[in-house]
Amino acid sequence: MKPDGKVVLLGDVNVGKTSLLHRYMERRFQGTVSTVGGAFFLKQWGPHHISLWDTAGREQFHGLGSMYCRGAAAVILTYDVTNFQSVVELEDRFLALTDTANRDCIFAVVGNKVDLTDACACVPEAEDGHLSEKPISSSVPTKVKKQVRMDDAIAFYKKILKYKMMDEKDAPAAEKMCFETSAKSGYMVDQLFETVFDMVVPTILEQKAEGSSQTVDLHNYKTAKNTQPGCCR
């Protein structure tokens, strides 16, 4: 049984990729440790088997990213809302990895750890150019300042489309594909994965109609054989 579609979680180290997946798959939050390489999960979605790849954010495993992304139907780019650098890293390091994904690959941009900030969901409306929460309001010591607004995510999403040379009209709307989640509380986690899976299904059906030649393709593997120097192949 080969999986029908591939969804890959990408993002910098410690943004909570594994926690998100763990919350979704096992319905609980558990402190995790840094992932090595990538972890593979199989999710039954209706009649389809969707493979989920949770990748390591560590730079050490960077060379592998394109391998995990090969033939992906969807890529979930994850950042940490309390760390602006994590969005910058997405653009600098991770976007290029998606070159090996499907041409019509779907992108989702996810800001995790909103539970750490005081204002969670009310950000998209804030158009005043300031962070919606004020420093004084974050008097609770556990709350930290939110560094990435929804607008930033939407802007980044548009950048992705540009990079992929996709027309904004053809791609799913930015508002629909940008999420803010909390793996700790479970906030928006199910919505995220379910939206992505639902959008992957048409791709799967299309591929099946085409003769399912390129599901999760081990067939193109020769093209990428020499990407990792100094390795056993």
Binding site: G37, G38, F40, F41, F61
Partner: peptide, 18 residues
């Protein structure tokens, strides 16, 4: 040791260079 220091999931399968 490396495996012991990594999150253990029964459902997941890890694939990593080592």
């Amino acid at each position: 040791n490396l495996i012991g220091a990594t999150s253990a999931f029964q459902t997941g399968e890890i694939w990593t260079p080592i």
